[in-house]
Design a protein around this nucleic acid. Structure first.
Lengths: 204, 204
DNA sequence: AGCATTGGGTAGCGGTACTATCCATGTCAA
DNA sequence: TTGACATGGATAGTACCGCTACCCAATGCT
């Protein structure tokens, strides 16, 4: 298909598709002439992925670029792939944060975590922020959160397909980023339900 | 204290503090003269909150403004306060999304949710995005996520202090926004642990 | 032949979050 | 008291992001 068809199918304006091509978020089409190129379903799929990462996962184009780079050039092992996906995703946290508290939580949970892991620094930053606003979170509270999330993560990792390399890559990268809004929305909904139960409100 | 002291204590540059004052994120100080004003610990606390919401929760200044507005002018009931906090937080989703799938998940979980609830639309948008990239999420999978998050949300709502109005407001608004990075970071860490267990890696 | 479409490129635009500068007023140490 | 410096208040400017508009020559479609 040509660029206008790609645009029509995905609802993304042609100038924006061109912009993504320039930015390297979308691979170039197969050139058939100086002013003609062909795009296929792979391009359409990639374009949908980029839009979903931007609109739903709220990623910046820079983060999207890192994510699709991980998709295009995946590390050798699935475990490393997960690490690459986590490195690509925001929030970026400086290397020099004090991860002591976060490491304590992880230890309490008995998890095996690389001490340079990006999520570890993100957790450390979040803990520090809670302290800064005068709402410190104790290790046992954080461990309760962690234990609640354990079965979810285990199920997710168990669902990673091992049959095909590409399937695994897509699943890990997309799943990590696109399920975050799902988790956040469900947490908020669960809060509303719990709040309705506790404070007793009539819902229309 | 004066503005420079406020700046020194929080690490926020003086011009930025002035900017926040202009934007209404920070209430004006008590003016003692034409070019002199006094700030107190309340200002310092608010400034820390604004910075935490921006840097850790990743909120835009517009979202921060909505959040602090909810803090300053809280609704009557705690349940409505939670709703206000959820409305103030991103992602903003159009009113006209199809919430059928999201409502189905909520029904499966047996939750009592206002059909106009913002998180319901956010869940609907996330489900639609997963479908668009070819990774549709079934009701039973989503319900498993929901059930895992239930105890967390129940514990959070149970922890809302009822003694003081201000404490409740601060807890709900700040807790909702600032615990989201905690949840996301812990989910990623749990994934890394599960991945290490499944794919067997040596961690240094 | 004629005209819209395409690819390819540059330039501009609107929004966000600051940052710099200016200035009249005020503080305070010498 | 005097003079250096800080402060509040305002305006203007900056840097980045994510597009969007425009232009042009080559091409395809009729």
């Amino acid at each position: 298909m040509r660029i206008s068809e790609l645009s029509r199918r995905t609802g993304v304006p042609v100038p924006t598709v061109k912009f993504y091509l320039r930015e390297g978020l979308l691979p170039a089409g197969r050139a058939t002439a100086a002013t003609q190129a062909q795009y296929d379903e792979g391009h359409e799929q990639r374009l949908r992925l980029v839009r979903a990462l931007v609109e739903v996962a709220g990623l910046s184009l820079a983060a999207v670029r890192r994510v699709v780079a991980a998709v295009d050039d995946p590390p050798r092992t699935t475990h490393e792939l997960l690490g690459a996906a986590h490195e690509a995703l925001p929030p970026a946290v400086a290397d020099d944060v004090d991860v002591t508290a976060a490491t304590g939580v992880v230890a309490e949970l008995g998890w095996r975590i690389d001490p340079r892991s990006a999520p570890l620094r993100q957790l450390a930053a979040a803990i520090a922020a809670l302290e800064a606003v005068g709402m410190p979170a104790g290790v046992e509270v954080l461990a309760r959160y962690g234990r609640a999330l354990e079965p979810v993560a285990t199920a997710e990792v168990a669902a990673v397909p091992t049959s095909s390399r590409e399937d695994a890559v897509a699943f890990v990268v997309v799943g990590t980023a696109l399920y975050e809004p799902v988790v956040l929305a469900l947490r908020r909904l669960a809060q509303q339900d719990a709040s309705a139960r506790r404070f007793g409100v009539d819902c229309p």
